[in-house]
C-alpha cells in the first residue's frame, strides 16, 4: 500500500511538469570503468533459472549494458547442495540441479576478473491467490480508461510483515515498465483483499498475475529501484543513488530467491 501512496504523491511534481516543456539533451560524460551487474533469480517454480551477468556501459553508449560471458558462477544452499553454473546464452548462467524450496537459504558466488562477489537470500513462502477480479474505470486524472484487475490472496505469514512483488502479464507478455514495478509489504493492510493494479486491460485480454515472495533486502532493493527510475531529479526527489545491492564487493543488481504463484483471468 505504501507504494500506491507514493504513486499518488508523484502526481504533484508531474502536474507542475505539465506546464513546462521537455527536451532531450546530450550528456557530456566521459568513459566509466565497467561495474558488474547481477540479475539472479531462483524460485520454487519449475527450473531452469538463470543468473544474468552484465556490466555498465557509458551513458552515451548505444547498448544499455554489456553481457559478461567469462565469469565462474557457483550456487549452493544451506543443506549442502552445490552447483557450478554453465553459460547458456549471452551473459546467462543456467541453474539446472538446485531447486528453490521455501525455507532454504541460497548462496551465490561469482568470480570475475580476479574479484569475488557473494550474495545470499532466504526463500520465503508466498500466500495463495484466491481469485482475480476486474472492473471497468472511466478515464480520470489518475487512471486511463480500461479494465483494472484486483487481487484477492492470503498473506504469506499472518504473524509477520511480508513482502511481495507482483508481475502482471497482458496476453502472456509481462509488463515490466518502470511504472509497473509493483512491490509492496502487507504492513498496513489487514489482508490482500482487492488490491487493484494500476494497469488498464482491454476487453478479451488475458490478464495474468504472478506473485513472488521477497526477503526484506530484496524488497528494499526494489523499493529503491522504483524510487530511482521514477526520480525526476527535481527538488522533491532524493539524491539519486544506486539501489542497495545484496551482493558484496560493489556489484550492482541483486540475487533473489522467491516462491511464486500465479493466476489468470480473461476480461469479458
Amino acid at each position: 500500500m505504501k507504494k500506491s501512496l507514493f504513486n499518488i504523491l508523484l502526481v504533484f511534481p508531474l502536474i507542475c511538469a505539465l506546464y513546462g516543456c521537455e527536451e532531450t539533451t546530450e550528456l557530456k560524460i566521459g568513459k566509466n570503468v565497467p561495474v558488474l551487474v547481477v540479475d539472479g533469480l531462483i524460485t520454487d517454480d519449475a527450473p531452469p533459472y538463470f543468473i544474468k551477468l552484465s556490466t555498465t556501459t557509458d551513458f552515451n553508449d548505444e547498448l544499455n549494458g554489456k553481457a559478461v560471458n567469462d565469469a565462474q558462477v557457483r550456487l549452493s544452499d544451506n543443506t549442502g547442495q552445490e552447483e557450478t553454473l554453465v553459460l547458456d546464452g549471452e551473459g546467462l548462467y543456467k541453474i539446472s540441479e538446485i531447486n528453490g524450496i521455501p525455507g532454504r537459504t541460497y548462496f551465490l558466488e561469482i568470480n570475475w576478473q580476479g574479484k569475488t562477489y557473494t550474495s545470499s537470500d532466504l526463500l520465503h513462502p508466498v500466500g495463495d491467490i484466491d481469485s482475480l477480479n476486474y472492473r471497468f474505470r472511466e478515464e480520470s486524472i489518475i487512471y486511463d480508461e480500461g479494465y483494472f484487475v484486483s487481487y484477492f490472496g492470503e498473506k504469506s505469514n499472518p504473524e509477520s510483515i511480508n513482502y511481495y512483488r507482483w508481475i502482471i502479464s497482458k496476453n502472456n507478455e509481462p509488463q515490466t515498465l518502470r511504472s509497473e514495478l509493483i512491490v509492496d509489504s502487507d504492513e498496513f493492510v489487514n489482508g490482500l483483499r482487492g488490491l487493484e493494479f494500476d494497469f488498464p486491460f482491454n476487453l478479451n485480454d488475458t490478464a495474468s498475475v504472478a506473485v513472488y515472495s521477497l526477503s526484506k533486502p530484496v524488497f528494499d532493493y526494489y523499493s529503491a529501484l522504483f524510487l530511482l527510475v521514477n526520480n525526476d531529479g527535481g527538488v522533491f526527489s532524493v539524491s539519486p543513488e544506486n539501489p542497495p545491492s545484496n551482493i558484496t564487493n560493489g556489484a550492482l543488481g541483486f540475487f533473489q530467491a522467491s516462491s511464486v504463484k500465479s493466476d489468470t483471468v480473461i476480461i469479458k
Binding site: 550528456l27 551513458f59 550492482l252
Partner: peptide, 19 residues
Amino acid sequence: SIPKGKYAFQGQPISYYDP
C-alpha cells in the same frame, strides 16, 4: 548527481551513479 553510466536490469535501462 549525473549518471556516470547505465546498465540493463530486467529489461529496463537504469542509470548508474558514482557511489
